[in-house]
Amino acid sequence: PDAITRVGHTLSDKAEAVIRTQIVSGERLPGSRLNEVEIAAELDVSRGPVREAMQRLARDGLVRIESHRGAFVRSLDAGEVRALFEVRASLECQAAALAAERAGADEVTTLRALLANSRGVVEGDVVPHYPERLDLHELIVRCSRNVALTRYLQLVNQELKLVRARSGFLAARAPQALDEHERVVEAIAVRDPDAAAAAMTIHMESALHSTLGLLHDTPENDR
């Protein structure tokens, strides 16, 4: 990555942002070591801001710090992934049901536009992948008009990003996920909370299966 610019937020804030992005994007894989000296050199900062950034990321569940061994990108095991998905599924299904009741006509139009754009991207690729910046889930949650639900879902998704970063790039998963999203959005559009929740349940089950399939493709924790 480029050296961070010394303007605006503190160096610790910027180091945290860079490392966080590398982790959730899959650039730094679960179990990989985070070398404080190397990262400081890459970002052209001292080790202090990097150390503070690591501690913050550890509090957020993205980094594991071990005494006398250093920092590692946290690895989730299958049990942890299932537990997080149980919470995520409950929140996402509730959000979809509430969105069916509360979404405005303009928001439904936006959801459909996102789907149409993504359909073009997925079907136009030689190796289909789900558009990385599609915020359909975020928009559905926003349509729920429930601030608490939004906050807790963000916390759960933060940890799941440790293994979900690459799930959208599985060739078989991209068109399947798009079809599942389409069913959720159409249920929201016709104002059917039960159908929206049911469609989201199916989507969450498929997403869990896909995410669990990624676990074997992560490095060992160097133990």
Rank of each mutant, 00 (worst) to 15 (best):
L43D: 04
I188G: 07
A78G: 01
D135I: 02
V156R: 05
L178Q: 04
V126G: 01
I65N: 04
Q154S: 14
A187E: 02
D179S: 06
R6L: 15
V190F: 05
A174K: 02
E52W: 06
V37L: 12
S75G: 11
L212I: 00
E92S: 07
R166P: 09
S12N: 14
K161R: 15
N146Y: 07
A113E: 03
A195N: 06
H209K: 15
F72R: 12
P30L: 09
E52H: 13
L62I: 02
A198S: 13
Q176F: 03
G104M: 05
G79W: 10
Q154L: 11
I39E: 00
A15N: 04
H68W: 10
C93V: 10
G79Y: 09
P128T: 14
S67Y: 10
S167P: 09
V108M: 09
H181I: 01
T109C: 11
A196H: 08
A99K: 11
R164G: 08
A15R: 04
H181E: 05
L114I: 00
L153C: 03
R142W: 07
G31Y: 07
N146G: 00
F169C: 14
D44I: 10
L114H: 01
V185S: 02
V81S: 00
V24I: 15
S118W: 01
R112Y: 00
S25M: 13
A89W: 09
A196K: 08
A197S: 03
R145G: 03
E220M: 10
D125M: 15
A103M: 09
V45S: 03
V7K: 13
L76K: 06
Q94L: 13
K14S: 04
N221G: 13
D179V: 05
I23P: 11
A83P: 00
A174Q: 02
R166A: 14
R69M: 07
S67D: 09
A189W: 09
A96G: 06
V127Y: 12
V108R: 09
G70Y: 10
G104V: 04
V73Y: 08
G61E: 06
H203C: 00
A53K: 06
H129Y: 11
F169G: 14
G70E: 09
A116P: 00
R64P: 01
M54Q: 13
A78K: 03
V18C: 06
I202G: 08
E92V: 07
V18K: 05
R112Q: 08
P193D: 02
A197P: 03
L98E: 12
D44K: 11
T150E: 10
E52R: 15
S206T: 09
E36W: 11
E16Y: 07
D106M: 03
E186V: 01
L149P: 04
S67C: 06
R119K: 12
V87C: 13
V121W: 04
A89C: 05
V50G: 02
E38T: 13
E42C: 02
R173I: 14
V156N: 03
Q22A: 15
L170M: 07
A15P: 02
P30T: 10
T150Y: 05
